[in-house]
Computed example of a mutant assay.
Amino acid sequence: MGIFGGTIENLERGLNFSTMKQKTIAQNIANVDTPNYKAKSVSFNDYLENAKKTSISAYRTEEKHINFQASSSSSAVFDYSNLRYSSNGNGVDMDKEQANLATNQLYYNALVDRMSGKLNTLQTVIKGGS
């Protein structure tokens, strides 16, 4: 467990998820006019399960060293193969994608603010409270 009880690691996972979701939404928007393109989404539960399975712990020479983990990028992206919003077989609903984009941006910004607060706390502790 890390210095903040795993908080930073969980925030990192959340940021990685949000980044993957942002890329998926951007891909959907970019392909809004592509015939037979099926919209994609990211499942948070699948992403979290894959992240738990694929994490690698670092070797620590002393027990007091901070434990960190690096996880490989796991795919939790799926497509909506049965949806069609236009006559050319495209499955992208632009209004839904824009709403998802705004929601994901708020989620990402909240995680960045929380991470910044944790790191500022750590910096204050390192400096001795001054």
Rank of each mutant, 00 (worst) to 15 (best):
Q27S: 10
F78A: 14
D93Y: 00
A70I: 09
L111A: 07
I56T: 14
V112G: 09
N28G: 02
I29T: 05
N90T: 01
T61Y: 14
A110T: 10
K40W: 01
A102S: 14
Q98H: 12
L15M: 15
S41I: 08
H65G: 06
D93P: 01
Y108T: 09
N88M: 14
Y108V: 08
Q22C: 12
S116D: 11
N120D: 14
A102E: 09
N67H: 14
S81T: 14
N82K: 00
N31T: 10
F4R: 02
D113I: 09
K118N: 15
A58V: 07
D46V: 14
A76M: 05
F4V: 03
M94Q: 05
E97H: 08
N10E: 11
Q105F: 15
S72I: 03
I8Y: 10
M20Y: 02
K127Q: 06
T24V: 06
L101M: 08
L119T: 10
D93K: 01
T7A: 00
T7V: 00
S55C: 00
F17C: 05
L15Q: 10
S55M: 02
A102V: 12
M94C: 04
Y108R: 09
N82M: 00
M20W: 03
Y85T: 03
D95K: 06
S18R: 07
Y107F: 15
R114I: 08
S71N: 05
Y85M: 11
I29D: 04
I25C: 03
I126A: 08
R13H: 12
V112E: 11
K52N: 03
N82I: 00
Q69L: 02
V42F: 02
E49M: 04
S72T: 03
N100P: 05
F68V: 06
D93Q: 03
N82Q: 00
R84I: 09
N36G: 11
R114Q: 12
I25R: 01
F4A: 05
I25L: 06
M1V: 12
K23P: 02
A30L: 14
I25Y: 02
G89N: 04
S74T: 11
F68S: 03
